[in-house]
């Protein structure tokens, strides 16, 4: 499988997984909440390709399924966690937003995860593991003061921390212009941190930018602040989408799956599509058969 084929397959897996969650919700088979990653798949796939799950650490946020799948490949653990099964990644205690497996962590409070990631990077530096710790935040999290405390410390202490800001332009329902003043990238630069910025849904472009970012952290041991402008096609959670349908339609023309898929051979793409559909169906079947947590 070529790199692009694998990237397409991963993105499609995330897409179908998230669509399946929304379907299961509508069928009453899921309770609680979820925050789907639909539209942002190229970010997770482009960045996480450069990380070693055995050594590196990823800390994600409420919108964590894409990162989790790209880093661990564990669809069954994730789906059964979200479905409240004892086979879930956290035995059903965490649910959609609170995941841990191996070197992957997520938590549901905005800004809360950056301090913990900073401490992880500090510990890994002390231990001399060479690990890169990557924390994913959104434009909404730019409102949290703890983020800036941590940019300050990560720079002061030269920590191997990659901060990825996925700017999907909305903090839940609040558009960026009502919540974020000034320039996003400049926030990292202000602390003497190397930065980069990309406005793309092209997984190959994101892959290249992320390569530079991860290499920088890996070779210098210093932090990096990577801003990826993106867009989510689905609601923040469920039933809370008040955006202009015209705007969403325009963005959908740049769907990362269309961009990558257009570069693939038709037969190859069809085979991948079919394999992903099958994998998702098998995962749903297995999770539905798994024991209910607490039963």
């Amino acid at each position: 499988m070529t790199l692009l084929e694998r990237q397409y397959e991963q993105m499609l897996t995330i897409r179908r997984f998230e669509e399946t969650l929304l379907r299961l919700f509508s069928e009453g088979k899921l309770t609680g909440t979820t925050h789907t990653y639909i539209g942002q798949e190229a970010d997770a796939v482009g960045v996480i390709a450069h990380l070693d799950p055995e050594r590196d650490v990823v800390f994600s946020n409420h919108r964590c399924h894409g990162h989790y799948i790209a880093f661990t490949g564990d669809l069954f653990g994730l789906l059964s966690e979200v479905m409240g099964r004892s086979t879930g990644t956290c035995g059903g205690k965490g649910g959609s937003q609170h995941l841990h497996r191996g070197n992957f962590y997520s938590n549901g409070v905005q800004g809360s995860i950056v301090p913990v990631s900073t401490g992880i990077a500090l510990a890994e530096k002390e231990k001399g593991t060479g690990a890169v710790t990557t924390v994913f935040v959104g434009d909404g999290t730019l409102g949290q003061g703890a983020l800036y405390e941590c940019l300050n410390m990560a720079s002061l202490w030269s920590l191997p921390l990659l901060v990825v800001v996925e700017n999907n332009h909305y903090a839940q329902t609040t558009p960026r212009h009502l919540a974020v003043a000034g320039d996003i990238r400049a926030r990292g630069a202000a602390f003497g941190i190397e930065t980069d910025e990309l406005d793309s849904t092209d997984v190959e472009e994101i892959h290249s930018a992320a390569q530079r970012a991860v290499d920088h952290v890996r070779t210098t041991g210093r932090p990096f602040f990577l801003v990826l402008h993106t867009y989510r096609f689905s609601p923040h959670s469920k039933g809370d989408d008040f955006r202009d349908p015209e705007e969403i339609a325009q963005r959908r023309a740049h769907d990362p799956l269309l961009v990558a898929g257009a570069r693939l051979d038709g037969d190859v793409r069809a085979r991948i599509d079919e394999a992903v559909e099958r994998l998702i169906a098998e995962t749903v079947e297995a999770a539905e058969a798994a024991p209910v947590a607490g039963a």
Partner: peptide, 14 residues
């Protein structure tokens, strides 16, 4: 506000 989290991150990693 962050230092408690920094300590937590260090503790999570041994």
């Amino acid at each position: 506000a962050s230092l408690f989290g920094v300590a937590a991150g260090m503790a999570l990693r041994g």
